[in-house]
Simulated scan of single mutants.
Amino acid sequence: MAATTFLETPQGRRLAYHKSEGAGSTVVFLGGLKSDMEGTKAVHLEDWARARGQAYLRFDYSGHGESSGRFEDGCIGDWHEDTVAAVSALTEGPLIVVGSSMGGWQALLLARAMPERIAGMVTIAAAPDFTEDGYWASFTDAQKEALETVGHVELPSDYMEPYIITKRMIEDGRTRLVLRSPLNLPFPVRFLQGTADTAVSTETALRLLEHAQGSDMHLLLVKDADHRFSDGPCLGLIERAVLEVMGAA
């Protein structure tokens, strides 16, 4: 496996990444909350892109994987800055953005920040606005008080150790919401969602589909697929979706 390379961002963060050179649009994988670039989907897509001779980029947000910083110190806005820095410094030309879970929110934020660069988008269990509609909306009065007094709360996860959710993450998330104002996606988009996902509901996927504006937008619901969306059939669906938005299917 190729050695990890690092990028120093304008904000002073050190991001770990793997980049494969190739032709055509660069496929950029944006991972989920507390995930890293060594996940099944990120590595599978890299192998798939290399076999096609397609340019590809995967990286770790700050506080994730091999990048600098602590997860507890980060927020949606920091990881958006990381995404913009990585894409700006490490890619040229059109992008095919693939965002998983929180990475789906990051993909939508990237579409607002640099719509001229994006040629297509695929999201997998996209979780836009989850800090507000998921965390804050479900917090008890005691948890909300803990945010104010302690500065964070711990939330259990079905997939890894508990999440530390900070007051900063909640407050910053409110400045990054994408489902409360126009969301224009003027390029081919494929939303993928499993019906057995316990982290992101099908209702969230439908809300995103109904809210976003675009002329080539599809939602694929996969019966019994969970949040990981990383078994063989699901990986095949991701490949097919990427080909569709590239116009190669």
Rank of each mutant, 00 (worst) to 15 (best):
E239V: 15
Q143S: 04
E244S: 10
H18Q: 10
Y17D: 06
R112W: 03
R174C: 07
E72R: 15
P128G: 06
A196G: 05
G65V: 03
G134R: 05
D73T: 02
R70I: 07
R13T: 13
A55S: 15
I76Y: 04
A212G: 14
V43W: 12
S101C: 15
D133P: 05
L235G: 02
G24C: 14
A142L: 07
L95Q: 00
S201H: 03
T166P: 10
V153I: 15
W48C: 02
F191R: 00
A51H: 12
G31I: 14
G120A: 00
K223V: 10
L147N: 01
A212V: 12
K34G: 04
L237R: 14
E81D: 12
F6A: 11
I76S: 11
R190K: 14
T204E: 05
D158F: 15
A85H: 10
T140M: 08
P182R: 11
F130I: 11
A55F: 06
P188I: 08
G232M: 13
T198Y: 12
E72C: 06
G120R: 00
A249I: 12
S101L: 03
F130N: 04
S35Y: 06
S62T: 15
L110Y: 00
E154Q: 11
A125Q: 02
V28C: 07
R112H: 12
S201Y: 05
H44C: 11
D226I: 01
S20F: 08
P10T: 07
L57I: 07
F187K: 00
E66H: 12
L90C: 10
L185V: 03
V178N: 00
I124Y: 07
L15E: 11
I238Y: 12
Q193Y: 06
T40E: 15
H18G: 12
E132N: 09
A249H: 09
G173V: 06
V27K: 04
M246W: 09
F187P: 02
M37N: 10
A241T: 07
T131I: 13
L177N: 13
G120D: 02
S138W: 08
H211S: 05
L95A: 00
I165P: 03
D158G: 15
G247Y: 01
T140K: 09
V87M: 08
T202H: 01
S62W: 12
H211N: 03
D141A: 15
H80K: 13
L177I: 09
A23S: 15
G99V: 10
A42Y: 05
W136L: 13
P128A: 06
P115G: 01
G65Q: 10
S138G: 13
L95P: 00
F59W: 07
L15R: 06
R168V: 05
M246V: 03
P182Y: 10
F229T: 00
M217E: 04
E81Y: 15
G39N: 14
F71I: 02
Q213M: 14
G22N: 07
V222C: 08
G173Y: 03
T123Q: 03
L183R: 01
M37P: 06
P156Y: 05
A119Q: 01
R58L: 04
E46T: 08
V178D: 01
P188M: 05
V87W: 02
M37L: 13
G236C: 04
E171V: 13
T9K: 10
A248S: 13
S215C: 07
L108W: 01
E154I: 03
A127R: 03
G103L: 00
L243G: 02
W105Q: 09
W48N: 06
G120P: 00
T149C: 14
M37H: 02
A119I: 05
L155C: 09
P115S: 00
F6E: 12
T83R: 00
